[in-house]
Structure formats: structure tokens, C-alpha cells
Design a protein around this nucleic acid. Sequence first.
DNA 1: TTTTATACTGAAAACGTTTTCGTGTAAAGG
DNA 2: CCTTTACACGAAAACGTTTTCAGTATAAAA
Lengths: 339, 339
Amino acid sequence: MPDNEHKITILDIAEKANVSPSTVSRVLRNSAGVAARKRAAVLHAVAELDYRPNIFAQSLASGQSMTIGVLTQNFGSPFYDGILHGILLGLEGSDYWPLFADGRWQPAVEMRALQLLLDRRVDGLIIIGGQISEETLQQVARKTPLIVAARKTPTLPENCLYVKNYEGGYNATRYLIEMGHRDIAHITASYVNPVAVDDVSQRRKGYEQAILDAGWQPDPRLIVEGNLQQQSGVLAIEMLLARGRSFSAIFAANDQMAFGARLALYRRGIRVPEDVSLIGFDDETFAPYMVPPLTTMRQPDVEIGQAAVAAILDMLQGKKPDLPVFETELVVRESVARR
Amino acid sequence: MPDNEHKITILDIAEKANVSPSTVSRVLRNSAGVAARKRAAVLHAVAELDYRPNIFAQSLASGQSMTIGVLTQNFGSPFYDGILHGILLGLEGSDYWPLFADGRWQPAVEMRALQLLLDRRVDGLIIIGGQISEETLQQVARKTPLIVAARKTPTLPENCLYVKNYEGGYNATRYLIEMGHRDIAHITASYVNPVAVDDVSQRRKGYEQAILDAGWQPDPRLIVEGNLQQQSGVLAIEMLLARGRSFSAIFAANDQMAFGARLALYRRGIRVPEDVSLIGFDDETFAPYMVPPLTTMRQPDVEIGQAAVAAILDMLQGKKPDLPVFETELVVRESVARR
DNA sequence: TTTTATACTGAAAACGTTTTCGTGTAAAGG
DNA sequence: CCTTTACACGAAAACGTTTTCAGTATAAAA
């Protein structure tokens, strides 16, 4: 690099402002009273020299990294992406900076990512989904402010952000029933390579309870399993059709599988919603642009991200965080018809 | 763990292994020869005490942060997300760690994010899209290895990753022509709040040239502008239809607008591809699940991300990076019919 | 006027590494 | 044998802050 300019440090500021380095530091962090005259001189020198503190020295000396670790499973997934967006929003103007890591739904990768985040001495940690053992999580929580979202963690009620998936599944099904449907298929997922997905099984329980409450018996022939990806929605429909059990509506445990299902129905010449109604879960960005626009249960992803950050920030200040419970919301579009 | 509070440092290792701290450091970074016996002792002590180096001290002493800054404009966008994924992939196993920042397509936010990344002393920087002035970019490039992707930067040919958008637009249009279409509409975008989108205007030039090469004149009534979002695709179709100029095919400058267009056509009862053919650009994850599956031009997003990382890593080793030029690829699905 | 708090402030000690400098020792060369 | 040369490796000096400690004024209290 041709540019061998001397990096300006706090010492340069001190010299230029005719004070000691300690005083410069005090001014910069507002950690103690400093005479107005000197404060001005310091500020002036800082501006003049365009001083940029060395973040490593700061962190080393103060023991704080001013970063929040965010461990997610899949940058690409729309739901996770919404949470990330919320985190970004929540962090805005807070002096903290997010450090993202992606576990890619692989236990080994995830553990490594967690370790790396810890090694980078994050001041707080937000974990979205994943499959790290509760024991490990407890251990982490003991040393670092921790929030776990989009995942069930019975042993850490104080650190968990929770969405009412059971109610969501119930309400989605209930809506179909109210629209006159009786034979309602459900596309669920119990293991995704190969981690149990509690959220989704909660939705299934809600589905089954809604059927029971209507006075009917859930029919196992109407339940198929996918893996949350679009393609598995296609397969689910094939399987369902092969079983020969008729149905007039489908509740997919997430939008992505609903999209796949919709495509499979199109290929079979089955119209939506004239022949079969379809409801999803998540309200992904694409849902309003499905043909026809997808009726679905919205999860407040951005809000969850914001709440996670708010909670971490509270914890960092020693306050008890408040952990709202999130409701899902029915978004009526055009993929469900009255029967 | 029975955490006796005492953080173990390199000194503890040194003591336990009966060597000096310097030697421990040498073993850990492999920076100089160490007697096999001592090396083993150090490694043993490290394992025994579960030593974790303090990354701030390392960075402070070595002057390297072992991080790569990534400045993106929009975590949510599928194309950007693909690039991010590629970056993650490329970084795997490289000792470097990505630091993400989101410019949100807002110049002020973007500049602030850049500044923060620089303050964190990233060893390299990848900028995806955005509107930071070329002058600023040059300044940055002088001090830090820099790669700019998905954006035109005439003054920085050595730092730029480039996709053949012109050819992509040309080929998409050419394909429609070959399929027997003559009246081909184009949904483009010239400014997106309010940054000029060079990629998209290249595609438009390709479109116009293909028409010219077929011996016809581009008709301005067949060109509408959106803002790259789905919703603008809907509006574009409304506008197009209102103009009364007939057309049998549409080339949308990105998939998102194609999705919106498809919805608008559905609402008007215009069938795809029987009445109107539709081709997009990007090959987003959702494209194969549109109804009907969308024919589109694929951009190698993941590969771009990987190439960006590879280039940065090269630069960090003082090597001249090789900067491949990326081709787009026609992905034929079912949204274009022969006329 | 003397005492006693009450600001300020600078010197110096962390913080936990990496890296430079020398020194002692063993191998190689004459 | 005596010099070089090469190698290991410990001591100590960075790296750039924050924070503690110990003053010194200065103002308030007595």
C-alpha cells in the first residue's frame, strides 16, 4: 500500500489537545467529568485529525465487544430473513453491531458457529431455531445474555421468544371448517435433516384439535409429511392423491410447501380454489403473488427480531427482559373458497 | 463447567507447559519452529485447559482482524441472498469471518455502514450493489482489498465482478423471437429509490438490440418501468394494457416483476402461456414454483459470492485476483409458448 | 483561616496477544 | 579445532485503549 500514513491514535489527540490520554478517553466515552475547555479542545482535535478509535484496543481494555451474535439456520429462508431484518432494525442506533453466523441446519456446523461467536466475545447472543442441546444452551446462558427464538426450549423459559403455533394451526383449520370444508388434508413435517421441528408439530396438533372440536375424527390418510421445502409440497400432493382419499382443502404447515402443492395441483389440472382450497403458514413475501394469492397464517417475523434485540439490550443493562408471546394472524387472500 | 472465573490466557498455558508465552504463540500460529517435545506439551496444555485465545488481543497485536466486511443492500432480496450464501461457502475453512452490514438502499445508511465496517478494521471488503460514489470506493480500495459486485464501476476494473447483463437481455429476447413472438413487451426499471440500476438498463439495451437485429423497430409503447418489486409488475401490466398496444410476450427485467405481472394477467383472465408468454431474469428460488413455472435467465448468484471471496483471499495474499465474467443462462420452463 | 469535600487530571497499570531481539547451543564448514 | 550458520526460545517491547490510583487545585464548610 503506497499510503504509509501514520495511524492517529489517542496519543495524537492528547498531544494536540494538550491533555493526557486518559482525559481524551474520558471525553470520548463520557465516563467522567472533564473541564469544558479541555473537552472542547479534545473534540476539536478529534474532528481535525479524523480520529477513529481502534476497536480492538477498546474491546481488549474494556472487556466489551459491542457485538451481538446472531446464530441462524438459513439466511435464505424468508421467515428467518424477516427475523434478521427485525434484528437489524432493533439494533439501529444502539452502538451494538450484529455478528451473523449460519448453522445451515447441520449440527456440526452449528456448534462450530456457536463456538466462533463465543470466541469473538459477543456481548449477547440470539439463536434462531437450530438444534443445539438445551444443556449447551443453559451453559451459554449462564455466561452470556441469550435469547432463543423460533424454537422450543422448555428449560429456558426466561430466554425464549415464543409464537403460538398451536393456536395458529388450530385457527387455520378452524377457518377452513367455517368455510364449509370437512375433508381437510394437512402437509406437515416431523423431521428436517434430521432435527425435530417443534413449531410444525404444534401446528399439526392444532389442526387435529380443530377437527376433533368439530366433532370429527382426524384421518391419518389425510396427513402427509414433507420437509418444509417447496419440492416436498409437490411430492406431498402426489402422495395424497395416490391414497385415493378425497379432500376439498389443504392446510400446509408452511408457505413453501403450499407453493409446491399449488404447482402439483396445477399439473394435475386441479383448480385452486374452485376444486381444492389451500392455506399456508408464514406469509412469506411471495405469498401475495401466488396464483391465486395465498391465504395464510402470518408470523410476525420482523417483530420477533425486534423483540429479541430489545430483550438482549435489556439483559445487558441488567434489567429483566420482557418476552412477549406472539400471535399468528389469518391473512385472507384468494386460495380458499367457500364450499 | 466448574467455572472458577479465572479466564485462562496464554500465560497459563506457558506455565503449564513449562515454556515461555512466546513459544506458546509460536506453536499456536505455526509461525516458527518449535521443538517437537515442547510443541506437544503446549498442545496438551491447550487441550487440557480448553484455552480460547482472546481475539481482540490477537487483532490488536497482529493488526489483522481476520474478518471480511460484506456490505449489501437488502438481506431479503433473493439475488443478494444467493451471493451471501456464496460468500459463506467461500469463506468456509478460511479462518476469516464475515461481517455483514445492510445499506437498505439508502445512501446515508450505506455510508454509515461502510464507515462502521472500516472502523472494525475488516481485512477485506465486498460491496454488493449500492450507490457509494466511485471516488469513495477508490479511496477505500487504496487501503483495503475490495471487490464490488452486481454494480457497474468503470473506474475500478480491477475490483469488479461482472455479469453479462446485456447479453442476458439479448438472449432472453432472442429466445422469444425464436419462439415466434414479434410484439414483445419489456418491463424495465431505470431508477430505484433513486439509484440508477445499470444492470437493468443493460438488459434493456440487449432487448432493444435483439429487436433491431430481427429487423424491427423497438416500440416505446411496449416498454414500461417498474421498481424491481413484485407490486410494480402488477402495475406495469395495467399500464401496458391501458396503452392498447397488443403484445404476445413479455420480458421482465427481473423475476419479482415477472411474478407481479403474472398475477395481473391472472386477474385479467389472460392465460400464461396460452395468451401471453412471460420470461423473467434471475431465476429466484420461487421461479420453478410459479404457476406455470417461470422461464427465466439465471444469474449465477452463489458463484458470484464465491468468486468474490476467492478474489479477496487472493488479494490478501498479495496475488492478483482473477475476476471471471459471469454468463447468464436461459432456464426453459413453461411460461413461454410457441406462437 | 483552617479543614474537608469535590471536582479534575495525569501517571501508570492493566488487557492478552504477537513480534522483535538477543543469546545460547548444536550442526556444518574449513 | 575453530569459525560460521542455523535454529530454538526466553525476555521484553509493542499494539491502542480503559481504568485505577494518587494527586492537585478549588470550592464549600467550619
